Amino acid sequence: MASWKNHVRAGLQQRDQHEKLPFIGVFTSLSRMEERFEIRKDILDDVQSKSLERGGFEVGKNVRLLQLQLRESEHLEEKLSQTVSDLTTVLHLKEAELQYWQSRVSHYHKEALTLAKGSNSLKATLSGFEYTIECQSKELAALRVEQKGLHEALAQTWREKEELLERWMQEKREEADRLNKYNYTQDRWQRLAQQLKKHLHREMKKEYVPIVTSSSGGETETPTSAIQRINNTTDIHQGH
């Protein structure tokens, strides 16, 4: 704000140096010329009165000289008066110009105050925005950290899921292998039981009452009891 004031002040001082300062001595010179004119006029009146009393050539000569000096002084006075008039006119113009520039300075001062208030308001708003941005940046950093943790947890969950799925598939494969082995064994037992039944029926047709001797106690079993034991053994294997 002080820069434009200094600029206006420097402009006015420069104008005074070019337009006002050269004519400062004119007023003093005019006053001195007026004083000299009054003195010469008084002297001339005194000389004329004395010349009338005494008479003489030298007195008339001095009177003409004084008249010439008086005319010269009057001429100079007219010039000085015209100069003073011109300077007065210029001074009025400069005063009007100075008032105009003072009004402009006042206007610019008010405008500068308005702009300063607007600048302060904008600075306050900017400070609020900066604070909001800082808070949002901190929240964003916290969310990024949380997101990173969630990504890591998700990756760990996917790994555990893959491992669990792999174990489950391995168990299902092993269970399928056991089931296939069991079915194969059952098929073998069923075929063997059918073969034994067929063979036993053929033997029963050949001999009506065959005697079966056990290896432990020498007891005898009828064909019906032997068939029942074969059927029971087959049912036990099918149950397993």
Rank of each mutant, 00 (worst) to 15 (best):
Lys5Leu: 12
Arg9Trp: 10
Leu12Ser: 05
His18Asp: 10
Glu19Lys: 08
Pro22Asn: 00
Phe23Thr: 04
Phe23Asn: 09
Ile24His: 06
Ser29Cys: 12
Arg32Gln: 03
Phe37Thr: 10
Glu38Ile: 03
Arg40Ser: 15
Leu44Met: 13
Leu44Arg: 14
Asp45Gln: 04
Val47Met: 02
Ser49His: 15
Leu52Ser: 04
Leu52Pro: 00
Leu52Cys: 07
Arg54Lys: 14
Gly55Trp: 01
Gly55Gln: 05
Phe57Tyr: 10
Val59Ser: 07
Gly60Thr: 06
Lys61Thr: 11
Asn62Glu: 08
Asn62Arg: 08
Val63Asn: 01
Gln67Gly: 15
Gln67Arg: 06
Leu68Glu: 13
Leu70Ser: 04
Glu74Ile: 08
Leu76Lys: 12
Leu80His: 05
Leu80Ser: 03
Thr83Asn: 02
Thr83Glu: 11
Thr83Arg: 13
His92Thr: 07
His92Phe: 05
His92Gln: 10
Glu97Val: 05
Tyr100Arg: 09
Tyr100Trp: 09
Trp101Tyr: 03
Gln102Lys: 13
Gln102Val: 08
Ser103Arg: 07
Ser106Lys: 09
His107Leu: 15
His109Pro: 01
Lys110Val: 08
Glu111Ile: 04
Thr114Gly: 11
Thr114His: 04
Ala116Glu: 08
Ala116Tyr: 00
Lys117Ala: 14
Gly118Leu: 10
Ala124Arg: 10
Ala124Cys: 02
Ile133Asn: 06
Ile133Ala: 09
Gln136His: 12
Ser137Gly: 03
Leu140Ile: 11
Leu143Ser: 10
Leu143Lys: 05
Lys148Gln: 06
Glu152Gly: 13
Ala153Gln: 11
Ala155Val: 11
Gln156Glu: 10
Thr157Gln: 08
Arg159Gln: 09
Lys161His: 12
Leu164Trp: 01
Arg167Glu: 06
Trp168Thr: 15
Gln170Cys: 03
Gln170Gly: 05
Glu171Thr: 10
Lys172Arg: 11
Ala176Lys: 04
Asp177Ser: 14
Asn180Ser: 13
Tyr182Val: 07
Asn183Val: 15
Trp189Glu: 09
His199Asn: 10
His201Asp: 14
Glu203Trp: 07
Met204Cys: 04
Glu207Asp: 14
Val209Cys: 14
Pro210Lys: 01
Pro210His: 00
Ile211His: 13
Ser215Tyr: 08
Ser216Met: 05
Ser216Lys: 07
Ser216Cys: 02
Gly218Gln: 00
Thr222Glu: 03
Ser225Glu: 12
Ala226Lys: 03
Asn232Arg: 07
Thr233Tyr: 13
Thr233Trp: 06
Ile236Lys: 07
His237Val: 07
His237Ile: 15
Gly239Thr: 15
His240Tyr: 02
